[in-house]
Design a protein around this nucleic acid. Structure first.
Length: 381
DNA sequence: ATTGCTTTTCCTGATT
DNA sequence: AAATCAGGAAAAGCAA
């Protein structure tokens, strides 16, 4: 089949789009167009010249389709979207069938994953399907902006930007105890370095937080920062058969310590307001998942329709949950225990043999695309 | 003050 | 070896 190369089609599509889409603007004002790169525009005298020279730039930076719901995409938007993905995945566009060239948004949205894969191939198809689902969800959510949802969004927006700071406050800087040789300034610097590295590593490369348990992080099990010692909550030393002495703590949540004096930048500025209803863990997780544009790869859908999802950065999500609950010692270990309690209540279903993978159960709600589209929010159980 | 629900914390042991 | 999963036990925190 002698098909023209995809890039030339995409270029033509963009050319047509921006020629017809642009108002009749004098060339000297072209540089002022808000969504077009102004890099080289000063030297252009005609619109044609501008379009031809900048077609690649426009294709890369225009992203008009991103501002519209996929249901309203024209065929040109669809091509632009595909072009973006081809670019990003370094996919060989010449192997693509041309069947899709006239598909518009509404028709595209009717395609399921299999059809998508059949048209775009096994490499690009699933990629595009996932992306389309994300855009669909994004725009369906705009009609549904409940307070909890925006709270989680806010948290997501702030979280990665400021990741290290609230966690740093859990480190002890040993100035108040000069006799403590463990807390020399160089030792502290080392601790901070180790700590920062652990956190950045988790977020950037899918690694794991280690400060909670690793010996080199300095936050050992007996760190009183994590386990406040009080008369009601004293440690119990037990002896094992081997003769080694271990610390055994009472079960259950330790009594709340007075955290009033140390306000973090994450404290809610709106004081004396109770946490709103409907902020359960599973709802928090759901709200992260239905914001694929914002969740920065913390979690992902494995099967959107079936409600199967996966933690990509388990400790980071746990930290975020802890932030929401004003609990700096939250870990994935503890979060996952709470998740496991959901199996019995059928809010979650077990997914056997797959680490970090869960599935929403019949008593969960607010995550299906249909539900989101019709404005049905999550109902607290 | 009581109660019920939802976590949180800790733990032991199994699995990946 | 380390991370994760499983699930019991106990208690906190909150709302009704």
């Amino acid at each position: 089949m002698s098909s023209p190369c995809l890039s030339s089609i995409l270029t033509n599509a963009n050319l047509t789009m921006y020629q017809t889409g642009l108002p009749d603007i004098p060339p000297q004002q072209l540089h002022a167009l808000p969504t077009i790169h102004t890099l080289e525009s000063r030297s252009y005298n005609t619109r044609e010249h501008f379009c031809q020279k900048n077609i690649t730039l426009i294709a890369q930076s225009g992203h008009w389709y991103k501002q519209i719901s996929p249901h309203q995409w024209t065929a040109e938007h669809v091509l632009e979207w595909i072009s973006d993905h081809v670019e990003r995945t370094k996919f060989d566009a010449s192997t693509l069938s041309l069947d899709f060239c006239s598909i518009d948004g509404p028709n595209l949205c009717r395609m399921n994953q299999e059809e998508m894969t059949a048209v775009f191939g096994p490499q690009l198809g699933p990629h595009l399907y996932q992306s389309l689902e994300e855009y669909k969800t994004k725009y369906e959510l705009q009609s549904l902006s409940g307070p909890e949802l925006s709270e989680t969004c806010q948290l997501l927006d702030n979280f990665l930007d400021n990741l290290s700071f609230p966690l740093l406050t859990t480190l002890k800087i040993g100035h108040d105890n000069p006799s403590d040789s463990e807390c020399s300034s160089s030792a502290n610097i080392q601790r901070i370095k180790t700590f920062l590295f652990s956190n950045v590593y988790d977020v950037c490369s899918g690694g794991k937080f280690r400060f909670m348990s690793s010996p080199e992080s300095g936050s050992s099990e007996s760190d009183p920062e994590f386990y406040p010692v009080s008369s009601e909550y004293s440690e119990v030393h037990i002896k094992t058969e081997d003769g080694d002495c271990r610390i055994k703590r009472p079960r259950g949540r330790p009594p709340k310590v007075n955290r009033g004096h140390s306000s973090s930048i994450y404290d809610n500025p709106k004081k004396n307001k109770h946490a709103p209803r409907g902020t359960h863990l599973w709802e928090f997780i759901r709200d992260i998942l239905i914001h694929p544009e914002k969740n920065q790869g913390l979690m992902k859908w494995e099967d959107r329709r079936e409600g199967v999802f996966k933690f990509l950065k388990s400790e980071a999500v746990a930290q975020m949950w802890g932030q929401k609950k004003k609990n700096t010692s939250m870990t994935y270990e503890k979060l996952s225990r709470a998740m496991r309690y959901y199996y019995k209540r059928e809010i979650l279903e077990r997914v056997d043999g797959r680490r970090l993978v869960y599935k929403f159960g019949k008593n969960s709600s607010g995550w299906k695309t249909e539900e989101i589209g019709s404005g049905i929010g999550g109902v607290s159980l």
